[in-house]
Design a binder for these strands. Sequence first.
DNA 1: GTCTGGCACTCGCGTGCGAAGAGTGCCAGA
DNA 2: TCTGGCACTCTTCGCACGCGAGTGCCAGAC
Lengths: 338, 338
Amino acid sequence: MLSERRLQVLRAIVQDYVGTEEPVGSKALTERHNLGVSPATVRNDMAALEDEGFIAQPHTSAGRIPTDKGYRLFVDKLAGVKPMTAPERRAIQNFLEGAVDLDDVVARTVRLLAQLTRQVAVVQYPSLTRSTVRHVELLALAPARLMLVLITDTGRVEQRMVDCPAPFGESSLADLRARLNSRVAGRRFADVPSLVEDLPEAFEADDRGTVSTVLSTLLETLVEENEERLMIGGTANLTRFGHDFPLTIRPVLEALEEQVVLLKLLGEAKDPGVTVRIGHENAHEGLNSTSVVSVGYGSGGEAVAKLGVVGPTRMDYPGTMGAVRAVARYVGQILAES
Amino acid sequence: MLSERRLQVLRAIVQDYVGTEEPVGSKALTERHNLGVSPATVRNDMAALEDEGFIAQPHTSAGRIPTDKGYRLFVDKLAGVKPMTAPERRAIQNFLEGAVDLDDVVARTVRLLAQLTRQVAVVQYPSLTRSTVRHVELLALAPARLMLVLITDTGRVEQRMVDCPAPFGESSLADLRARLNSRVAGRRFADVPSLVEDLPEAFEADDRGTVSTVLSTLLETLVEENEERLMIGGTANLTRFGHDFPLTIRPVLEALEEQVVLLKLLGEAKDPGVTVRIGHENAHEGLNSTSVVSVGYGSGGEAVAKLGVVGPTRMDYPGTMGAVRAVARYVGQILAES
DNA sequence: GTCTGGCACTCGCGTGCGAAGAGTGCCAGA
DNA sequence: TCTGGCACTCTTCGCACGCGAGTGCCAGAC
């Protein structure tokens, strides 16, 4: 087990390296943090930390830099989450409150996160699966062609075309519309299937086919998770990475264009609270030198989607985690109000 | 006026520079293109071209590279648009035909453009202003709170909340819904205002306030051009730019995050046909070493939105213009079919 | 007049060398 | 167990040098 002082040394190394972006040596460490011991002692500690795999030296005669394992220990044990200051919190709230609709909320959130963390921000649109239905609308576009519009409590609107097996009268349509809404309005998506399964029985034989078609389209829409959309921003911050650009930045930009990859990245976060994935902990290669800080957010107690940032492993974890957490909290509030 | 051969020299310089990314000298030129004259002659021509401002040399003893003015001449007079090959056209068509809805069409278009041109692709969602109305729906969310849903012929859906000055009965609502649709369904946005202006008169005094409110919300939605959305993709291609990275790539990434800037960029294109803006011709600084190739596209004869690519001034103009034109054409077809 | 070949000149770029500096590892002593 | 000292290793930076590409100009040929 590592002694208390060695953990302090590791913490100091991480902090200095994040600040300076340069390998940190024993002498500089003792000067900047008063550890109460001499550089020689720190050197011994560093050798031990290196043996354990927490730090490494890029070249034989250079300072040390933290490894992924080192950052992991730092995040788990050595550093907390740095809370936002009151003015920062106010600024976040003000900025988000100016949003006029769901798209705007998401857009503002991305922007805010990118600015606060100076990194790449990723925000998932509030997911359908955990939301509730606000309203279902049916429109006749043609005698045997309907449009189904689903409005959720998060303000999201989904529309689907429905081709009916048989013409469907205006009165039947109104009937179906009314019955559907009285059953599902205000209900959670997960509950909808059992609430509507017996609906076709209330209609005449001629109309049952159409009703069933409409219902199955509705259910499809509800479970259609692959439609989950994302918005990203702050990619310009990638240029702050290092100076060995093309190699570092390219795979990241490529990964960011793959929605699937991003969703997986955010989705992996399971715990409540802020999740941090460091370097190689991200399955996707190309993100091997980046970390992802993510958290769920939602209007009620439960998370309806995730948001987070992507940045170099060498990032200010406490600050980033604080910003991500705070933004998630306020976005949740905004969604709950609207 | 420049002689025919000098124009050929300029064309050769542009082609070589685009290919090699290195300043091109007189000797290399005569070797790669059989101009029928000696390097010395070419040198004289180059000196003349430089006097006129079409080419420049980065260092005293280096080859020449085209200036913005040189590219402009090249695009206008020396090169045409390189048509796509038949297999390429088929591939475009196949790829776009797989789209399931409007979002998907736009997403696929962005992807396609980015891959074809190996540059950053920008696609504007089909604009509302030139579209026609497919359907208008009104839903009562509360006694004095309505939701207005507008469905366009391009498949786009816009929704707005309407707070009514007075409660609005279900029968009045149905009446308004029916009257509204009979008047505006299938009509162009531009025609809607005059078609509905006398609608309030058909209602009882109590309801007129609400009808007016609904109508003005509808008209607002129709003209709301700042809601025009964009999708971009292929930013990873920026890493192919040069090796002097941060300076080149950063401002471009920043500009790409500003919807306003992008819309202006695309919007400036006035002519029918492909528009090319080279380097400093783009008002936005930071895009001084990039060119924008854009074109309008639409489902009918008229353009409803624009798409284009952003890349280094040193780009393959004929090929890029060909790709942009072809993609725009097929997207138009897809939109017309759906 | 226009084109050509030759020639001197200019620079940028890559290479090699040496000095400087930072950092380490180890060891003996407190 | 900590500390100071010392020798060693490597990277980095500056500098000089030579090479090569490319130019500009000029005199002569068609």
